[in-house]
Structures are given as C-alpha cells and as structure tokens.
C-alpha cells in the first residue's frame, strides 16, 4: 500500500426520487481509498451500500459533496453475473467491446487480448464463442471480472461479487480477486453483507446503517473491538465466524 490516493469522497449526500418522494440515501459519507487497498463496505439491504458504490464510480450523479477519482478507468463487478453480461452477445464480443470503443479495430489483436484476459481470470479460449447463458455462475462471474479489467482499470468496485455463488465457487472467486490484485496492482471497494468474506479480503472496513457510516477502521480492530451496537449485532449474527 502506498499513500497515493485513488478515490476520495468528502461529506457526500445522495438522494433518490424526485419532488415529495425524494429520499436521502446517503448521509454525510466520507471515504479515502489508497492505492493497493481493499476497503470493505458492510451493511444490510437498504443500508445504502450499493448506492455508495454507484456514487463512488459515477453511476449515480445526484450527489452533493466532494468526489475525486484519480484513476482513468474504473469499473464495477455486480452480484448478478447474469444481468451484468449482455445476453445477446458472446463472451468474446463482451470482452472486446471496451477495446473497440477505444478505437482498436484489428480483429486478430482484439481476439488475442480477449483470450489473454480469459486466461488471466482462469478461463480458456473455448469460452470465447459462448453466450453468457451457456456458462455456469462461477464462469460468468469470471467473465464479468475479465470485462472489468480489460480496459486497464485500476479501481474495481465489487458489489456483492460472490453472494450469489455456492461456497466452493465463492472461495475460488475470492482467491482469484486477491491474486489479480497482487498481479495487476489493483484497488478494490468490496461491498458485502458477509462479514467473514469481508475479513478474508479487506484491509479496512466501513459499516453502514440507514445511509450512514456507523463505524470504520482496520478490519482486525473493528472485528475484535466493535464500538457501535449495530456492528456488534452483525458480528454476533454472522454464523460463519463462529
């Protein structure tokens, strides 16, 4: 980890809806992510953790406050790999699209880079021509990761990337994420409701509750000595930590 700051949010508020139905989803959130760091964001559904991810990366624009992103490309990996891969396209097409949009037209070179990226995430050339529906859940999530990396993103926001997977696949994908981080010098924001998974991969953790950050700090410090009631409740309920 270096001191180079990749992402900074300062006192961010975010809202949802218009007019009378307008609701505040994020309340006064500040966070700093350094290069090479993995920041875990924990909370239950409705806590605003996914909105925070979308704010950080610029998919939600209705925000107040400061937002500074110091990397050229950032990408997101979603929980539902079925929804995050275009069902009408092949794996190859999906991986090549970011390169095509950036002006690469040479078909051979496109294919070479796509296949190379497939191998990086533990897939084979034979997956190149498949449609997402012809892959297993684990394979699809690998393709999502490959698609997020191919344009050279250094910041990846992982929104519950393993929550929909079986436990053995979950372990494999987590290991892959950790390996990729080392090899490619990545930084992650890792969103999850599973404290055990967060512990395995994160350096720091932020606990969210009703749109607010109620606790944050070094993973070990928070897990060993939780301050906020909600954090204690979460840790207690987390069966897999027992």
């Amino acid at each position: 980890m270096t001191n180079e700051i990749i992402l900074h949010l300062g006192n961010v508020n975010s809202y949802y809806g218009r007019g009378k139905a307008r609701k505040q989803v994020l309340k006064n959130i500040s966070l700093t992510l350094h290069k090479g760091e993995v920041l875990g964001v924990v909370g239950e559904s409705g806590s605003g953790k996914s909105t925070l991810a979308k704010c950080a990366i610029g998919l939600v624009t209705d925000i107040e406050g400061e937002r500074k992103l110091n990397v050229e490309n950032s990408q997101m990996v979603f929980q539902d790999s079925y929804g995050s891969l275009n069902p009408a396209k092949t794996v190859g097409w999906i991986l090549e699209e970011p390169l095509r949009v950036r002006g690469l037209r040479d078909k051979k070179e496109l294919r070479r880079r796509a296949v190379e990226m497939l191998q990086t995430v533990g897939l084979e050339e034979e997956h190149y021509d498949r449609k997402p529906s012809q892959l297993s859940g684990g394979q699809r999530q690998r393709v999502s990761i490959a698609a997020s990396l191919i344009q050279g993103s250094k910041l990846i926001i992982l929104d519950e990337p393993v929550s929909a997977l079986d436990v053995t696949l979950q372990a494999q994908i987590l290991q892959l994420l950790v390996d990729l981080k080392e090899r490619l010098d990545l930084s992650y924001i890792f969103i999850s409701h599973d404290l055990a998974v967060v512990y395995q991969i994160c350096d720091r953790v932020m606990v969210m509750y009703h749109g607010e950050v109620v606790e944050q700090g070094d993973v070990d410090a928070v897990y060993d000595n939780p301050q906020h009631e909600y954090t204690k409740k979460l840790l207690e309920a987390s069966l897999s930590l027992g």
Binding site: V167, Q175, A196, Y199, S240
Partner: peptide, 13 residues
C-alpha cells in the same frame, strides 16, 4: 474448507 473463516487470503503471484 471453502467456508470463509477469519483468515486472510494471500495473493499469489
């Protein structure tokens, strides 16, 4: 073994 436990994953080069 696959269950996440309180153990840090090590990245492999």
């Amino acid at each position: 073994e696959s269950r996440p436990t309180r153990r840090k994953l090590k990245g492999r080069k």
